[in-house]
Design a binder for these strands. Structure first.
Lengths: 210, 210
DNA sequence: CCATATCTGTCAGACACTGACAAGCATGGC
DNA sequence: GCCATGCTTGTCAGTGTCTGACAGATATGG
């Protein structure tokens, strides 16, 4: 009843309206910038009232970053499906692959780059994006703790290891996005991620879950 | 003329008023929370108008995170003073030590923990903090590029290495802050940082500036 | 003592966001 | 076909952050 991805008619039309709003909004954002576009402009573009737009998106940033929230669930599911014996760094790399694949999926890959650029250029959007990444890291850390617990080598409650490794991996993701935006000619985001994640990695001082 | 840390009378009184506002605001934030405290409340607490408070702080978040901006300059200076032959990871560790030392300095160390907790608990504040860390990373990456340039082994423009290493280090900083807040009994932030930065690190596939 | 610069309060406004209410429109039982 | 129910929508009103403009108070420097 809450906010599931039901196949009901209501939920379907709701998602359609969401897409319509996001589509019109992104066009305006690309055209005249994020901050220079008001909610009223977006509402007028789709023929709705300002209030209704806010019924579909809790905040202005969510219009741009809303898609990311949907990917997060897929990424966490991908992480859970990774074999327990796999090195953590590899599992995190494969988790990011889910996001990269959707970003480079054919059809709407043209909008990905300008939107990406806007997110990293607009302070408010970058802050919101980093906040979402941070929130996702909490979920990843929980998963890593559960995995270590299942392996018989749980982390101590105040052990910074799982969060440090996770934060380092997410740092590589952001570095890859930066590098991808700066690359000329434009390479693939997947290769940028691979290169970034090859430059750093976890250190295993003693035996700790192979 | 712009915004330097002059020793003039004007700049001195201005910083005094800033401190007074921040002090009163932090008391209110700790007492009733960040979001539940309005600018009008803060203005009333220091006997000023709402408009004048905004003349000293561009945003509500800056009242809390303004001190961080001052530390950033010291940290960047510390990074520049590190010997060029020192491993990057160690240089970054020493850079963070500057911030840790100020956080654990005697006198105002009691306020550090509750403020820390508020920052990590309040979404808007966490987002603003992460944004500032990201902006600082840009400066650190520039410094690392300049250092590699001076060493005769410059990075390519789209090489994600310097940013990935930097992002990983900052991830360790955040992980250390988390671990420090979660630790009972409360350990030192410096030791938490040391443990976090020991868990991950750069990989040197080939010879690249010792 | 005066010209200049700075600080201040007040007013007004843009903008994001929220709650409340009533009207429109659908679905589903009768 | 008809009506009750529930969801969506627009309108209105309000809060809170943040900004610009103006005028008065205060301080600085010649």
């Amino acid at each position: 009843m809450s906010e599931k991805q039901q196949a009901g008619l209501r939920a379907r039309t709701r998602r359609a309206v969401r897409r319509e709003i996001a589509q019109a909004a992104e066009a305006l954002f690309v055209e005249r910038g994020f901050e220079a576009t008001t909610i009223d402009d977006i509402a007028a573009a789709v023929g709705m009232s300002q209030r209704s737009v806010h019924r579909y998106f809790a905040s202005k940033e969510e219009i741009v970053l809303g898609k990311f929230d949907l990917v997060v669930d897929d990424m966490l599911a991908a992480l859970r499906d990774r074999p327990a014996a796999e090195p953590i760094w590899t599992s995190l790399h494969r988790t990011f692959d889910v996001m990269v694949a959707l970003a480079e999926a054919p059809g709407h890959a043209e909008l990905v780059e300008p939107i990406h650029r806007i997110v990293f250029r607009t302070p408010a959007l970058l802050a919101a994006y980093l906040q979402r990444l941070q929130r996702m890291q909490d979920a990843v850390v929980s998963e890593l703790r559960a995995r270590a617990e299942a392996a018989g080598t749980p982390y101590a409650d105040d052990d910074p290891t799982p969060r440090a490794v996770t934060a380092a991996a997410f740092g590589c993701l952001i570095a890859a996005q930066h590098s991808w935006l700066a690359s000329t000619p434009k390479g693939s985001l997947a290769s940028a991620l691979g290169r970034a994640m090859a430059t750093v990695g976890p250190r295993e001082p003693e035996a700790h879950h192979s």
